[in-house]
Simulated assay, not measured.
Amino acid sequence: MGERTDSGTVEVSEAGVSWWVGERPGRWARGRVTAGLALLTALLLAFPRVVPDRPGHLGSLLEAFLPWLGLAVVPLLALALLRRSATALLSLLLPAVAWAYAFGGLLLAAPEPSGRVLVVVQHNVSDVNTDPAGTARTLAEAEPDLIALEELVPAALPAYEKALAPAFRFHEVRGTVGIWSKHPLSGTRAVDIKPGGIAEGWSRGLRTVVHTPYGEVAAYVVHLPSVRLGTSGYASSWRDESAHLLGRAVAAETVAKVIVLGDLNSTVDDRGLSPLTSQLNASERGFAFSFPASFPLARIDQVLARSATVGRMRTLPATGSDHLPVTARVALR
């Protein structure tokens, strides 16, 4: 039971007396903090670049895992229900709409491209993979035109060459990256994407021309430097410098059609990759989270293209690597 007083409301129960200063807040007045958090979540989903990249590359870190920010709606919904707040419940529409706008298209079905199409597979095979032959067979079963591999070590290379030779007559390796193709290759060379702070001998990029039935395509196979999350923040400076060098190489490419395949060590939303991704098309269908293989959280293995459209991305079965392979159909224009 309750009794009004001049200073507010006294509520009497068996447990004692509770005092409310003023009127008890209504369901529209409650939950303002929850509503504010929902608004902040929507803002970050829609405009992640409001978060500065300095210090600690926090903006890049947010963008690398941006789709998962939508999960914030779950605890906010629980709070809104607990508070019985109509304001908080309605505010949750904002992050839901923002997430759907940013990532909902990746869930939609779309017709696969047809006609002038190349099927490609991208895979970081891991330098500690104990089953290179089995890995190669898994990739070949997707029946691609091109296979791009990273973390190729000399001890495992013969196994890949032997397993892939029957279906892929042409292949090139530079440093720790390689490409296998059903179509002839020419003009293969290493691409220098080594950041200034890394020792000599580091070679993780190649460029070659694939002579397809639909004309020449410049194919790049790359492995950008790893990133680390530590007490000083998100260490991505080497990765960003490497992306800048790769972007400059792609910008100078004279062949009109370009496909970039590689482990970029981040997602296409990451501003650190913008020197490259701003020039190229990415898939608009399929999340295809590829890393880590045991519990995939992000797609850091990418297929990007110029003068071509990348179809739905999907993952292939797990191999002996800590990455999952990804594949896509690329329609040449």
Results as ranks from 00 to 15, higher is better:
200 E>R: 14
317 P>R: 02
319 T>E: 02
258 V>I: 13
203 S>V: 15
274 S>Q: 07
184 P>C: 06
205 G>M: 14
195 P>Y: 14
278 S>I: 00
324 L>I: 00
184 P>A: 12
197 G>V: 12
290 S>M: 02
293 A>N: 01
190 A>Q: 11
235 A>G: 11
212 T>M: 11
207 R>W: 12
315 T>G: 00
284 E>F: 01
223 H>E: 15
269 D>L: 08
231 T>V: 12
318 A>F: 00
271 R>Y: 06
239 R>T: 13
257 K>H: 13
200 E>C: 05
186 S>Y: 10
192 D>P: 10
318 A>S: 04
284 E>T: 08
185 L>E: 05
208 T>V: 15
317 P>E: 02
188 T>S: 15
183 H>I: 04
194 K>V: 11
237 S>R: 13
317 P>K: 01
205 G>D: 13
253 E>F: 10
278 S>N: 06
289 F>S: 00
188 T>R: 07
275 P>N: 08
225 P>Y: 15
204 R>G: 13
186 S>N: 09
254 T>F: 00
312 R>C: 01
271 R>E: 09
213 P>G: 05
277 T>M: 04
307 S>W: 02
261 L>N: 08
317 P>L: 00
301 D>W: 00
272 G>N: 06
246 L>D: 10
219 A>N: 08
196 G>Y: 14
259 I>G: 04
190 A>T: 12
298 A>R: 03
243 A>Y: 04
234 Y>T: 08
256 A>V: 10
207 R>M: 13
261 L>I: 06
248 R>D: 09
210 V>Y: 02
277 T>A: 07
306 R>H: 06
229 L>P: 07
304 L>P: 03
182 K>Y: 09
284 E>Q: 08
316 L>A: 04
311 G>W: 11
212 T>D: 08
198 I>C: 06
311 G>Q: 10
213 P>I: 08
241 E>W: 12
229 L>R: 08
250 V>E: 14
